[in-house]
Amino acid sequence: MSELGNIKIADDVVKVISAKAAVDVDGVFKLAGGVADEVNKILGKKRPTHGVKVEVGEKECSIELFIVVEYGYSIPEVAGEVQEAVIKSITELTGLKVVEVGIYVQDIKIKEAEAEEEIEILD
């Protein structure tokens, strides 16, 4: 609380910042949504924050990100960079303390050209 009154940052603000920070990391193909996000897609609702869950308090927050990593990148390195990027962005833009950033790798994306080459090699 400041001298002028309360400041409350909405969960969606933290979600958007987290999503942007995550997808900007090299090796992250996209965020991976869960069942609710798939239902929203079917209904035509687009959300830039699918694949992000947050809990926001007055002074701190925790974040869970569900990501798809590009094939060829080290998963532990990408996950670590996402954690660092999210913490930095949230701290700088909101002033909230980030207590944890959980990363859940849901899938690996193989680029189309690489996938075709693999198929040719297997034939």
Rank of each mutant, 00 (worst) to 15 (best):
K111I: 03
P76W: 09
A19K: 07
E112K: 13
V14A: 09
E58W: 04
I110K: 04
K30F: 00
G72A: 02
K30G: 04
I9W: 06
K109I: 01
G34L: 13
S89W: 02
Y71P: 00
L31W: 03
Y71R: 02
A36E: 13
Y73V: 02
Q106H: 12
V25D: 10
I110H: 01
I42Y: 08
E70C: 08
V25L: 11
G34N: 13
N6L: 10
I90H: 05
E55Q: 12
V39A: 15
V14S: 12
E64D: 15
V56L: 09
V13A: 14
I63F: 07
K41C: 03
S74V: 09
E92A: 11
I75A: 10
E55K: 12
A21Y: 10
R47W: 05
T91Y: 06
K97E: 14
I108C: 04
D26W: 11
I90E: 09
V23E: 10
D12W: 11
E3I: 01
K20G: 05
R47P: 00
I17A: 06
A19G: 15
I42C: 00
I42P: 00
S89G: 00
A32M: 01
V78H: 01
V23P: 01
K97Y: 05
E60N: 14
E120K: 08
E92Q: 08
L65P: 04
F66G: 00
Q83F: 03
C61F: 04
S89H: 10
D11R: 03
A21M: 07
E120C: 01
E84R: 15
G80C: 02
E77Q: 13
K109E: 14
A115P: 00
K20E: 12
A10S: 15
V23T: 15
F66N: 14
F66Q: 08
D123T: 03
F29S: 14
D11V: 02
Y71S: 02
D24W: 00
F66W: 11
S89T: 08
S18C: 07
K111D: 15
E55V: 13
A36M: 12
E58F: 00
E3C: 01
I17D: 05
I90C: 02
Y104F: 14
L93A: 06
G5S: 03
I108M: 11
A22E: 08
G80T: 06
Y73C: 03
I87T: 15
Y73H: 15
E116S: 01
I7Q: 07
N40L: 14
V35C: 03
K53M: 12
D123P: 00
G57F: 04
K88V: 02
V78L: 10
V68A: 10
Q106C: 12
I90G: 04
A10F: 04
R47V: 07
V86D: 05
A19L: 07
Q83V: 09
E64M: 11
K59E: 15
E3N: 11
V68R: 05
K8Q: 10
S89M: 11
E116W: 01
D26S: 13
G33T: 05
V54T: 15
K45M: 07
I119H: 08
